[in-house]
Write a protein that binds this DNA or RNA. Structure first.
Ligand code: MN
Ligand code: MN
Ligand code: ZN
Ligand code: ZN
Lengths: 125, 125
DNA sequence: TTGATAATGCAACAAAGTTGCGTTAAATTT
DNA sequence: AAATTTAACGCAACTTTGTTGCATTATCAA
């Protein structure tokens, strides 16, 4: 349990992620919350929410950090290995509910996998 | 043809990649070549070598940019979609010669895919 | 050897993310 | 309800990665 106090910042970010269907970049959040909280706070709250299992993070094509809400299944079973999709046209990033099977790689111990698929989303293709 | 002059910097970096079996991060290259060339030059030469099809790049787990030599097959057929492996213990990054099949994702047009698998390499597991 | 210009060095900059520390405000105790 | 504790915050300064503009250098071909 990383978040021990329900602060205004925690509530704001929790609400944003609960109301969003897509992933959100830290840069985006820092910008739109500029008047409400400090950028350091954004980084720290997101980190805590991830530790709590509410959010998960990944790196986008541009190298920026993105966060998305975990599904109930993920929160309980820590099954966080799903691919992400980033639209090259509108920039939207989403979690994909598909399973990608990783072949066994000889002499290597696999711990986690990050899949990032890019292309055109439903609105842009 | 992006590289039109065989400069000392181009030769240095070409040799490094020809002699390396693993991928190399730009940060690493900038550091070890500090006495030989400017960091701007490192960035620019790598960009040109990638445009020429000799190297390909990808983003590591840490968000840093990595480069690796393309295989002959990749140089000719532009078949650059292979996974990469990053060792969590020693930090080594390699290209993996395995095929990962991306399932069709409805309502989305897939353009490219980045796969990054992390774990322990042969030396560290 | 000379001339055109691709490539480099350098310094300044931009953007993402981190750190330290004093202050504020949640939550708990009295 | 007031006092206490300390998690969380704001702010400023900093670090790191990567980029840009421009003067200078060195490659290559005429
Ligand atoms: Mn996701
Ligand atoms: Mn590769
Ligand atoms: Zn789109
Ligand atoms: Zn290793």
């Amino acid at each position: 349990m990383s978040v021990v106090r329900k602060t205004k910042s925690v509530n704001t970010l929790t609400t944003i992620f609960n109301e969003s269907t897509s992933a959100l970049s830290v840069v985006n959040l820092v910008n739109r919350l500029k008047s409400q909280m400090n950028k350091t706070t954004v980084y720290r709250v997101l980190e805590r929410l991830e530790n709590d299992g509410m959010l998960h993070s990944f790196i986008g094509v541009d190298g920026l950090k993105w966060y998305a809400k975990c599904t109930e299944d993920e929160e309980t079973h820590q099954n966080h290995t799903h691919p992400h999709f980033q639209c090259n046209d509108c920039g939207k990033v989403e979690c994909l509910d598909v399973t990608i099977t990783i072949p066994a790689i000889k002499n290597k111990q696999i711990e986690s996998a990050n899949f990032l698929i890019t292309g055109q989303c439903e609105n842009c293709k």
